[in-house]
């Protein structure tokens, strides 16, 4: 996202569109998303349910439910290669090796019929071709120790149902990190956990990310989670990124009306009658988005042009862009 000096981005997503064909019409789940991610940085993607954040993530590893879903256009450059142009076989070699994923639900993310040791060996066998039982065991135990599972020598023989949600999430994290990926994608990594455990898992992710100079993308609907681990934030609404900024810049100076509304509802401010701020209306149905800015119907600052044309990206600072007609009007580059 930050177009900073020289260093090429590890991941660059350009104008990504992922559509789902349903009986009720085409759902434009991701509709022209672009961002880039430097080595060793963490990008948070926030948005409501259905804003396309998870689909963006799954598009990067090309795991979109076929045949309904399809990546229509765009480029996903990972270390300079366009992932969308790779064959399935080449993609399979990258997944789990250079790009790993941590999923949302620790209850279903481990196979109930295998011990966790057994499951953790799988990526090592598949990607590193290690066959020796004792080597595999040692690596698995080291991996579990790194994510803070107590007594890993014993735990490798446990089955998923014998572990708590937080521990399972650690196991899933260990599995993701086994092959030393350069990019880690976390889809709502803490949503299914209770608050105290959330903190632990976030701290763990942060530590590992720093230690290994890992690049991470964290998708969440929870701004608090984003604030705790991310360097940069992208706010998604109805399949588009409406604002991108460095963490501090976004929180101190939110510019898009949707971001501002999110912040208001986060801060626990009340509206005089003692009620929390909510954003009026509902997010749009992504199957029926009309022209213009998708947030316009709920926006307090909407103008005429908002309903007819999607706003171009306005650069507020080198590290902060937004797509809003009202903002561009304010800073003078106004509607052309």
């Amino acid at each position: 996202m930050t177009q900073m000096s020289g260093q090429p981005a590890l991941l660059e997503v350009k104008n990504l569109r992922t559509y789902f064909r349903t009986r009720a019409g085409v759902a434009k789940a991701v509709d022209g998303v672009s961002f880039s991610l430097q080595q060793g940085r963490t990008l948070g993607i926030v948005g409501e349910s259905g804003s396309g954040k998870s689909v963006t993530m799954m598009s990067i590893v090309r795991l979109i439910a076929k045949p309904a879903g399809r990546i229509e256009s765009g480029e996903i450059l990972f270390e300079g290669k366009d992932l969308l142009k790779l064959t399935d076989e080449e993609m399979r070699r990258i997944r789990g090796d250079q790009i790993a994923v941590v999923t949302q639900d620790p209850m279903t993310s481990l196979n109930p019929v295998y011990s966790i040791g057994n499951q953790l060996e799988e990526p090592l066998r598949l990607h590193q071709g290690i066959k020796t039982k004792s080597v595999l065991r040692d690596k698995v135990i080291a991996g579990l120790r790194r994510v803070g599972i107590p007594a890993p020598e014993m735990r490798v023989r446990s089955y998923p149902h014998q572990m708590s949600g937080g521990q399972r999430q650690r196991v899933v994290t260990a599995m993701a990190l086994e092959c030393h990926p350069s990019l880690l994608l976390c889809d709502e990594p803490t949503t299914a956990l209770d608050v105290t455990v959330q903190m632990q898992v976030l701290r763990l992710l942060r530590e590992i990310q720093r230690e290994q100079r890992l690049s991470m993308i964290i998708v969440s609907h929870d701004l608090a989670v984003i604030a705790r681990v991310c360097d940069d934030v992208a706010v998604m609404y109805a399949g588009r990124i409406v604002e991108k900024a460095g963490l501090v810049s976004l929180f101190e100076n939110p510019s898009h009306p949707y971001t501002k509304a999110l912040m208001r509802s986060l801060n626990g401010e009340t509206d005089g009658k003692g009620r929390l701020h909510a954003i009026e209306g509902q997010p749009p149905d992504v199957r029926q988005i009309k022209r213009g800015c998708p947030f316009a119907p709920r926006c307090r600052e909407a103008m005429d042009i908002c309903t007819s044309e999607f706003p171009p990206e306005v650069v507020l600072s080198p590290n902060h862009t937004t797509s809003c007609w009202a903002v561009s009007a304010k800073i003078g580059s106004g509607p052309r």
Partner: peptide
Amino acid sequence: KLAKVAGC
């Protein structure tokens, strides 16, 4: 999904 991600 994770098995797919793991490259199975």
